[in-house]
Design a protein around this nucleic acid. Structure first.
Length: 720
DNA sequence: GGTGGTATGCTTTTT
DNA sequence: GCATACCACC
């Protein structure tokens, strides 16, 4: 263990060695956070004799959980592993065991966003709420936001007409979920909180059990996650949270940055450790990113530093339009590759998924292989969801949404009329599939329709029997064959159909792999419900990576291109001034992904939804100290740049000099607002003057290094 | 029930 | 500008 510890820096070591009691770790970008967490967990097990089963470590992504689990395993060798999982997976694990007391059965299904919206559409129709009043998507957003804040149907605010309407939708939606024995993503967390609240004995068991709780990315926890961790940690109070307020980028998903900012208020005895040494980026990249995020007011503020070389200046490239931007990026990537970089070392970031297209086209033209993370998700594809719906229905026959999805897929002549006739029995029967049986038993369908529905029910019954006798991947393959899905696609010569066949094959392969590892069908469905595309990013294939800035969090690349750095795109036009700080944090996250080289590109004109826009360069570009930048592009624009940066600078200086009460002309000619030049720091603006004679000092805001207090006698300031 | 036309709407989306 | 979603029609 001593050896292992010696590989840590003093702050990391302190975080690892901390014993009992609350611990807050501010971990700056690239400061070795995962490493520290892994060592801490291993230390608790190896040196403090904490049983692995009594440790709970929570992350936000499966990928992060996997990495942490693997590193811990490497450190502790074989033997029991602690719980390392996402919030959602941890809740599923608890709920599979305990959900009986909430009136669900343990085989509950997990609905993704798409499922939720479909179900909400049904709700809105039943409640006679026109889509113009409330779209399924908007309803989903309202309900999800409520769940994130721990608000159940019982506590939902009905005081306004819109609130009353939303409450009715929420109520019906929850009823439908319950009848379908299903939980959506928000439910996984909220039901767990409610379980603990209503069943103190159950809570007590878990409180006892989890002697140590560690939470990663604490800055992105929402209120329910906050409640969950804090209530679970209430007994032992060994709560270790790790995060970086500057990397909080999910406010719009309910994340509350206050959770991390107020940790010391929640736990006055908390030990606070700052990991401020960055091992990832060059000095220049770090300084530039730091200067940008320093513009934010609501932050703890930290001083990241690095022993790494200063590195090359940041390239800011101005291009004429979006096409040229894509061309420039592709050409530059080609050049980097010829210089010896590998494609997998290079990433292209953009603000919205829709922006990937141009880069794809340009990369194809340059014959540069790439991979896109995000966009349309594999498990959200229609054909994949269709096949999964069959399996879901077998595991959880109450899943009416799944039943409705596949009753006529592939087409077997059961139309909307028949479906609606069956739906009339849904309530009595308790689910759509049961309603099919009931409708048949009551002879409620026309003869042709009845035949077809009977065929569907018998088909499913056959699959149901096979479920007990054959491995589920085989069953899945049989479903694809016996339903006629395979034939349908094979007879279709189109490219779309070919893609779909490939996707289904990939799906079946994935199942095979999972089953070989000993997983059951229920495990598989659960895992599939909780994975994302970013999780599957392996970084091994030699390809350029394209992704949104959000998807990039937690990753690093030797070379990073941040594109479309323009007002309206980034920061995005949809964010109001209040959320600008979050956009800026997103910028910070993007910049700090870069290890060696960082490119920031912006176009003078760009096509957005078909119209040409002339966007101003992003304010974030102007917040990067010019001394760290190499500008490429139209030289005439450099004057514009210089002018804008001076303006920004003056505005900033103005704002911060407001506290100064009186300005006198002075014998040295300096006053607040004077532009001065310093031999090392370059140009700056005088913000404050104090003292006289040899002790006279000036506070100067420099473009390059920010604010400095200088003794005039030694500073050698020149007018500029 | 499948095809083709037009309407629609488009930030980010850890799970 | 483009993909999807829904409706009308065959």
């Amino acid at each position: 263990m001593g050896d292992v510890l010696s590989s840590l820096n003093p702050m990391q070591r302190q975080a690892v060695l901390h014993g009992e009691g609350p611990l807050l770790i501010f971990a700056g970008a690239g400061s070795g956070k995962t490493r520290t967490l892994a060592h801490r967990v291993a230390h608790l097990i190896g040196a403090r004799d904490v049983a692995p089963s009594r440790i709970l470590a929570v992350t936000f992504t499966n990928k992060a959980a996997g990495e942490l689990r693997e590193r811990v395993q490497r450190l502790i060798g074989s033997g029991d592993a602690p719980w390392v999982s996402t919030f959602h997976a941890a809740c599923v694990r608890i709920l599979r065991r305990e959900i009986g007391s909430l009136g669900f059965s343990a085989s509950f299904a997990i609905y993704d966003d798409q499922d939720s919206e479909r179900l909400l559409k049904e709700c809105l129709r039943e409640l006679d709420i026109a889509e113009q009043t409330l779209t399924p998507r908007a309803a989903a957003a309202v309900i999800d936001a409520a769940k994130n804040r721990g608000i159940s149907v019982a506590t939902f605010d009905r005081s306004t007409p819109a609130g009353e309407r939303a409450a009715r939708v929420y109520t019906l939606y929850q009823e439908k979920l319950r009848r379908a024995n299903a939980l959506d993503f928000g439910d996984l967390l909220l039901w767990t909180v409610l379980l603990f609240r209503e069943h103190p004995a159950v809570l007590g068991r878990y409180q006892d059990r989890f002697q140590h709780i560690l939470v990663d990315e604490y800055q992105d926890t929402n209120r329910v996650q906050y409640q969950l961790t804090n209530v679970l940690a209430a007994r032992h109070r060994n709560l270790c949270v790790v995060g970086d307020d500057d990397q909080s980028i999910y406010r719009w998903r309910g994340a509350e940055i206050g959770n991390i900012l107020d940790f010391e208020r929640d736990y006055p005895d908390a030990v606070v450790i700052r990991l401020e040494q960055n091992y990832r980026s060059t000095g220049i990249i770090l300084e530039a990113a730091g200067a940008v995020v320093a513009q934010n007011a609501r932050r703890k503020g930290k001083a990241l530093w690095t022993d790494n070389p200063r590195g090359e200046p940041i390239t800011v490239a101005q291009v004429d339009d979006d096409l040229e931007e894509a061309r420039y990026v592709a050409a530059e990537i080609g050049r980097l590759v010829r210089q010896g970089h590998r494609l997998r070392d290079i990433a292209v970031f953009y603000r919205t998924n829709a922006q990937s297209r141009g880069f794809e086209e340009a990369l194809v033209r340059h014959r540069l292989p790439y991979v896109i993370i995000g966009g349309v998700k594999f498990f959200a594809r229609a054909e994949v969801k269709d096949v999964l719906a069959y399996l879901r229905l077998l595991v959880n026959p109450a899943d009416s949404l799944a039943a409705r999805r596949i009753i006529n897929v592939p087409a077997r002549g059961i139309g909307t009329t028949t479906v609606e006739r069956i739906a009339a029995f849904e309530e009595d029967a308790g689910g759509f599939l049961a309603a099919c049986r009931l409708a048949l038993a009551r002879d409620a369908l026309k003869s042709v329709a009845a035949e077809r529905v009977r065929g569907f029910v018998e088909l499913l019954d056959g699959f149901g029997r096979a479920l007990d006798t054959e491995p589920y991947p085989q069953l899945a393959a049989r479903i694809v064959a016996d339903t006629g899905y395979a034939t349908l696609l094979r007879e279709d010569p189109s490219e779309v159909a070919r893609d779909r066949i490939q996707n289904i094959e990939e799906l079946l392969n994935g199942m095979q792999q999972h089953a070989t590892g000993g997983g059951t069908l229920q495990d598989y469905l659960e895992q599939v419900a909780l994975v994302t595309d970013v999780d599957s990013y392996d970084g091994q294939a030699d390809r350029v990576t394209l992704m949104t800035l959000h998807a990039a969090k937690g990753l690093e690349f030797p070379v990073v291109f941040m594109t479309a750095m323009e007002e309206g795109l980034f920061p995005h036009a949809r964010v109001d001034e209040e959320d600008i700080e979050e956009e800026r944090r997103l910028c910070y996250v993007g910049m700090t992904r870069a290890m060696q080289q960082l490119y920031l590109t912006h176009a003078r004109r760009r096509r957005v939804f078909g119209d040409v826009h002339a966007n101003q360069r992003s304010r974030f570009l102007d917040e990067v100290p010019r001394t760290l930048v190499r500008e490429i592009g139209n030289p005439a624009r450099r004057w514009e740049l210089a002018r804008r940066q001076t303006e920004l600078f003056a505005a900033h200086a103005d704002a911060s000099s407001r506290e100064v009460r009186v300005e006198y002309d002075t014998e040295d000619g300096l006053r607040v607002g004077t532009r001065v030049r310093h031999a090392t720091f370059g140009v700056g603006l005088v913000q404050q003057l104090e003292g006289s004679g040899d002790g006279r000092k000036a506070t100067v805001l420099f473009q390059s290094v920010g604010r400095k207090k200088l003794v005039l006698k030694f500073a050698g300031l020149q007018p500029a």
